[in-house]
């Protein structure tokens, strides 16, 4: 049983026939080839599959394809504009917040969503804001540094905030 769904994906309209119970993460990775969104646990516990749904961070591994209908979806491939890195991405690179990189797309999405809600966070607020994204490599410190740095960049009038 397939149903037609339409949504806005990284700024472009998408219309597709899909099994409505298919997981959103599989739709993105397998049907649409956007493998930047990762799956780490399949049960909403690690944040690797984070995407923005109408500007809100959600977990695509516990979301069905049917729920994508009509939404504005942003995946890691849609963060940053015109080939320019988003300030969050720049800060992740500059502050050494990336090791194996498998949590990174979800981390970046989570940080982008968090900074939209809280553009001037304290370090403790950043820790809380990123607490749903497991990183097994970095010990988080450089990730927190990066989000702190990105907040400053965005407040300072960087692009893409």
């Amino acid at each position: 049983m397939k149903r037609k769904i339409s949504f806005l994906l990284n700024g472009s309209p998408v219309a597709m026939e899909v099994d409505p119970s298919r997981r959103a993460v599989d739709v993105l990775r397998e049907d649409l080839g956007l493998t930047g969104t990762k799956e780490g646990c399949g049960s909403g516990e690690c944040g690797a599959c984070s995407i923005l749904v109408d500007d809100v961070v959600k977990l695509s591994c516990i979301m069905t394809a049917a729920q994508l209908e009509g939404r504005k979806i942003v995946t890691i491939e849609g963060v940053g504009q015109d080939g320019e890195l988003h300030p969050v991405q720049r800060s992740f690179v500059e502050r050494g917040a990336i090791q194996c990189g498998f949590c990174t797309p979800g981390m970046v999405i989570a940080a982008v969503g968090f900074l939209k809600e809280n553009p001037d966070p304290t370090r403790e607020e950043i820790r809380a804001g990123m607490s749903g994204n497991i990183c097994r490599c970095t010990g988080y410190e450089k990730i927190i540094d990066a989000v702190e740095d990105a907040a400053a960049k965005i407040r300072g009038g960087g692009s893409g905030g």
Binding site: R23, G42, G44, E45, L59, I62
Partner: peptide
């Protein structure tokens, strides 16, 4: 979906519709 969908997804969904 944070409760219903967290169990191993295919098994959950076999018990639909939703």
């Amino acid at each position: 979906g944070t409760d219903v969908m967290v169990r191993s997804f295919p098994d959950t969904l076999r018990r639909g519709p939703f």
